[in-house]
Computed example of a mutant assay.
Amino acid sequence: MTDGRRLVDGYRLVVFDLDGVIYLIDRPIPGAVEAVGRLHAEGRAVAYATNNASRRSSEVADLLTGMGVAARPEEVLTSAAAAAELLGDRYPAEAPVLVVGAEALRAEVRAVGLTPVTRAEESPVAVVQGYGPQVGWSDLAEAAVAIRAGAAWIATNTDRTLPSGRGPLPGNGALVAALRTALNRDPDVVVGKPSPELFATAARHAGAGRTLVVGDRLDTDIEGAVRAGLDSLLVLTGVSGVAELLAAVPEQRPTYVSENLAGLFDPAAVVRVPGPAEAAGWSAALRDGRVELSGAGRPLDALPALCAAAWSVAEPVSVRAASPEAELAFAALDLLAD
């Protein structure tokens, strides 16, 4: 940031995505435990919003606490709970719902008074589909039969991938895509991000004051924040990288970018995007259909100028280094230059 203030001081509530921001699968991302602990020590409101439907809020809170992040179930908003709440509002008590996903999703369906089932012949009123590592062909087949018979189709989220220590792995969106192909139709409702409900709910719980959303994915976390009318911080510890950032459509553009959660507290570790075309020693301009970066400085400080140039045109553009320092910056930002 250019004014020397801490980013976090401008917000009452910080809402974190989990996978790719706080942890990768079951291991905390370096610095995340310390960052959340610092927020708690300062008395700041914290919430967690996750599209992962394989754990209940209490399980997520226990997982976080086990990693050293003190978390309460009421601070955790999951797409599984939101989907179950939607179904509970829509259907009478004990109505059968075919659940495709993990046991956590079944538990959320039971918690709202509905009856989880596994086969289409049990005449479910709806199919709810969430991520589960054991979901297989037979589960998708039962869902397809039930939906063709008239059951509503609710997806907890459509994340194409989920982050892991080995790189992105197939997410619920990949499984939804299989059903979409088989049925030649989209789900009736997608509950999780980028729909704004999870973030809007968190902001309502916090009351008055500004909310900052912190995420690692442009197509879910950041777009969800934009739809909810909230500021957002993209951290580069998960799925979306700088190349994807420069190609982002308007509804997926963050307010700020940081390499990690240090950007919440260190003004030098976060930048606002887009920024001036010439600043912090860098200059970016469109030349011959490419974004050309010249000058010298810290790699992160080049992002505001790069975003300003790349976002000034409708189509994604490639980048080119016009100085040796720019080549080093591209390497540090994992950008492939022409």
Rank of each mutant, 00 (worst) to 15 (best):
Trp137Leu: 14
Gly136Arg: 14
Glu142Arg: 11
Arg110Asn: 03
Ile147Lys: 10
Arg148Tyr: 00
Gly150Asn: 11
Thr158Arg: 15
Thr118Ile: 02
Ala126His: 11
Ala102Phe: 02
Arg160Ser: 02
Tyr131Lys: 12
Val135Gln: 12
Thr161Cys: 03
Thr158Tyr: 00
Arg119Ile: 02
Ala146Asp: 03
Thr161Lys: 03
Val97Trp: 10
Ala126Phe: 08
Pro133Asn: 09
Asp139Phe: 01
Trp153Ala: 11
Val128Tyr: 04
Val145Ile: 15
Asp139Arg: 13
Ala155Gly: 05
Val97Asp: 11
Gly130Ile: 01
Thr115Ala: 03
Ile147Val: 15
Trp137Thr: 13
Tyr131His: 14
Thr115Asn: 01
Ile154Val: 15
Val99Asp: 08
Gly130Lys: 09
Ala146Leu: 06
Thr156Asn: 07
Gln134Pro: 00
Glu103Arg: 11
Pro163Lys: 12
Ala104Lys: 01
Val117Leu: 02
Leu140Tyr: 03
Leu114Lys: 04
Arg110Tyr: 11
Asp139Ala: 10
Gln129Thr: 10
Val100Trp: 05
Ala141Ile: 02
Thr161Leu: 01
Ala155Val: 05
Pro163Arg: 11
Arg166Gln: 10
Leu162Arg: 09
Ser164Lys: 10
Ala107Ser: 10
Gly132Arg: 10
Thr118Leu: 07
Ala143Ile: 07
Leu162His: 14
Val117Thr: 12
Asp139His: 15
Pro124His: 00
Thr156Glu: 09
Trp137Ile: 08
Ala104Gln: 01
Ala152Asn: 05
Ala141Phe: 02
Glu103Tyr: 05
Gly165Ile: 11
Ile154Gly: 07
Asp159Ala: 04
Glu122Phe: 06
Asp159Glu: 05
Val127Leu: 08
Ala141Asp: 01
Thr161Val: 13
Gly136Gln: 05
Ala120Asp: 06
Gly136His: 06
Val100Ile: 14
Gln129Glu: 12
Arg160Phe: 00
Val135Thr: 14
Arg119Leu: 08
Val100Asp: 07
Arg110Ala: 12
Asn157Thr: 03
Val112Cys: 05
Thr118His: 12
Glu142Gly: 04
Val117Gly: 02
Asp159Gly: 02
Val145Leu: 14
Ala120Met: 08
Thr158Ile: 08
Arg110Val: 14
Val135Ala: 07
Ser123Glu: 15
Val97Tyr: 08
Ser123Asp: 15
Glu122Asn: 05
Val117Ile: 12
Leu162Val: 14
Leu162Ser: 03
Gln134Leu: 08
Leu162Thr: 10
Ala149Pro: 01
Asn157Ala: 07
Glu122Val: 04
Glu121Gln: 09
Ile154Cys: 07
Gly113Thr: 05
Ser138Cys: 00
Ala155Lys: 12
Val99Ser: 06
Ala111His: 09
Val145Gln: 07
Gly101Glu: 12
Val128Phe: 01
Arg166Asp: 13
Glu122Arg: 14
Ser164Gln: 11
Gln129Val: 02
Arg148Gln: 10
Ala102Tyr: 04
Ala151Gln: 06
Tyr131Glu: 10
Glu108Trp: 02
